[in-house]
């Protein structure tokens, strides 16, 4: 079942063409690795899907509905969640507050509506347990390890029934042991029927968890094939341009 379908998506910044005519489909429960050199257009593509800015042209169909996002919140409201490279966490707040940022649980207390911290803590704790993370809901984020911070950012995507999760270099700045944790988290998302687009520079990560690999080079898609029929060598050649297309 196709979840996301991009047709002829392109983006120009002034005279600079960042993306040209990208077609891409993602099925529900599929993990797609998005690879490419710096400046290949990965980030631009992800930002368009995440609603950070609109494409210059092309159409986007999500869940059989044509969609136009102008702000990140638009994308989130249809079920697209993003785990940003720097995780986009507010260090001064607790893990639970970060998970619920922008969609806090509230209860009425007489004439005023107040935050329901207890419910948010309970719900966040349940999410962390589901993700098999040791993160405590009422800890401040600034006191957490890299893996715990990842768990907070990923727990955020589980809050509402997300259908597609975009992950931008989730393993770039963490230790080897924590990489394994993050890859486990991605598998758990897939098992729950959620599609994942994983942007990564790390070949082993992509070949461990992805079902399909898409390679961009200079703003164009040069490969889109199942992971079994490719190899790290081939992908490297595609990224660098040693091999034109596959």
């Amino acid at each position: 079942m196709t979840l996301l379908r991009l047709r002829g998506i392109g983006k120009e910044f002034g005279a600079i063409r960042a993306l040209a005519e990208i077609d891409l489909t993602v099925a529900a429960g599929e993990v797609v690795g998005l690879m490419g050199d710096n400046g290949a257009g990965k980030s631009t593509l992800v930002k368009i899907i995440a609603g950070n800015f609109p494409p210059s042209h092309g159409t986007m169909i999500f869940d059989d509905q044509p969609v136009h996002f102008s702000r990140p919140i638009d994308a989130r409201s249809v079920g697209i969640e993003v785990v940003y490279q720097d995780l986009a966490l507010a260090d001064n707040l607790t893990a639970a507050a970060n998970v619920f940022l922008g969609r806090e649980l509230k209860r009425r207390l007489g004439p005023v509506t107040v935050l329901d911290h207890a419910a948010m803590n309970r719900r966040a704790a349940a999410l962390f347990q589901e993700l098999k993370s040791e993160t405590r809901a009422d800890d401040l984020v600034r006191q957490m390890s890299g893996g715990q911070r990842q768990a907070v950012a990923i727990a955020r995507t589980r809050l509402k029934e997300a259908k597609l999760v975009l992950m931008d270099e989730p393993t770039a700045a963490i230790s080897v042991r924590q990489v394994a944790e993050v890859l486990d988290l991605i598998r758990r998302l897939r098992d729950a029927g959620i599609a994942v687009i994983l942007i990564s520079h790390r070949m082993p990560d992509v070949f461990t968890v992805c079902d399909r690999v898409v390679v961009l080079r200079r703003g164009s898609k040069v490969a889109d094939k199942p992971i079994q029929s490719s190899s790290p060598e081939e992908v490297t050649a595609l990224i660098t341009g040693a091999k034109e297309a596959a």
């Binding site: 702000r71 001064n92 970060n98």
Partner: peptide
């Protein structure tokens, strides 16, 4: 909560809508 989030990480807050 929005005030604290904006002060803690303005970009994260704006991503959160």
């Amino acid at each position: 909560q929005k005030v604290y989030a904006t002060g803690g990480n303005e970009r994260a807050a704006s991503y959160a809508g």
